[in-house]
Design a protein around this nucleic acid. Sequence first.
DNA 1: TCGAATACCTAGCGGGTACTAGGTTTCCGA
DNA 2: TCGGAAACCTAGTACCCGCTAGGTATTCGA
Lengths: 199, 199
Amino acid sequence: MSTGRERGGYAKGRERRDAILAAANEVFAKRGFRGASLATIAKQVGLTEPGLLHHFASKEELLLELLELRDQHDDERIAQARAAHTTLHDLLVELCRQNADRPGIVRLFTILAAESVDEDHPAHDWFFDRYTLRRRQVAAGVAAEQDDGRIDPTLDADAIASQILAMFDGLQIQWLLDPRSVDMVAVFEAFLERLRRRR
Amino acid sequence: MSTGRERGGYAKGRERRDAILAAANEVFAKRGFRGASLATIAKQVGLTEPGLLHHFASKEELLLELLELRDQHDDERIAQARAAHTTLHDLLVELCRQNADRPGIVRLFTILAAESVDEDHPAHDWFFDRYTLRRRQVAAGVAAEQDDGRIDPTLDADAIASQILAMFDGLQIQWLLDPRSVDMVAVFEAFLERLRRRR
DNA sequence: TCGAATACCTAGCGGGTACTAGGTTTCCGA
DNA sequence: TCGGAAACCTAGTACCCGCTAGGTATTCGA
């Protein structure tokens, strides 16, 4: 029920919270949750470690709020893209294109998703739920395209949804390791293109 | 030029080294390189931390030897599978099937690959080289299949190679997070099947 | 069987970790 | 403007980190 903002506080505090979240995004993206330290994040926004902990009770709470914020941003981003693009194909390509301009966020997700495979990881449940949801959303989109005759109707929508997410994640790893090795957007689009073709 | 075994040593020592590498595999797979501690690994094989460091000079050296060993194993595994399966399709499905029975190793690679995106990570170069090599190998295999008429010759072999590796990695993440959500082998095979079909 | 190499231990170093206690300064609404 | 809340600091806790120094016990080839 809480929005994470019911703390109120002064304007200065709210700005700091945002700055801390931005710094945490960077540091977690570079070193993962376990490899990152609160001291590093604190220093990046000109605070001491206890200064940071005044705004977020613990390292784990910081991560969880970061993910919650990201959920909101992503939902908005997807809603906007959905409004601007009529087909699933165009929508997915647009999201991929956006990611190609935000390596920081792509890194954050790539490393956190891998870390979170461990059930003890604080973001495990979040990623579990996220993948479950996204698979359902994409599968629904695929099914709709099949009804409209834009995707081969003999394909299994759930399997295709898993494949689309897998291709998204997998290409990101290669792209992050060596951006020049893979034209992420083009290769992803070529993959989607093959779904469109009929036998 | 070194094989990592020129140290010689007694039989007991060689057994311990193997046991340490096996334990490191487990612990790194669960917590990543940065999240893992030498003490945990040492305890798992009944050693103290300095006892472990008698066999491996540093945590980083332990990781690097683990990866070197894995390279050897994988090359053997691929060579065997290549001998037993005539087509690229069958070969890849067989490797995927084997991975479905070794979640520990899949976890190790998933988390280390994500961590190693950071250039400061000790395994960065290893993963960079590994992906470069695998892409080249798979692209060559795809090109051969195109010559034989088993894959649509209008497709770009390099792009397809990236897609195959991406699908491999991406499905593994979903499968590790929730094995029941994805039939990894079946979904991967369905993906490959679509390459075979002509327009 | 003897002795040098190996295996492994205890003790400790320097530094980092998340987090707490308790205080001072700054902010801002009543 | 005044007073309580919020922002933030210094100091400190208890513990973990990779790694080293220096010793003893074990192994196994000559």
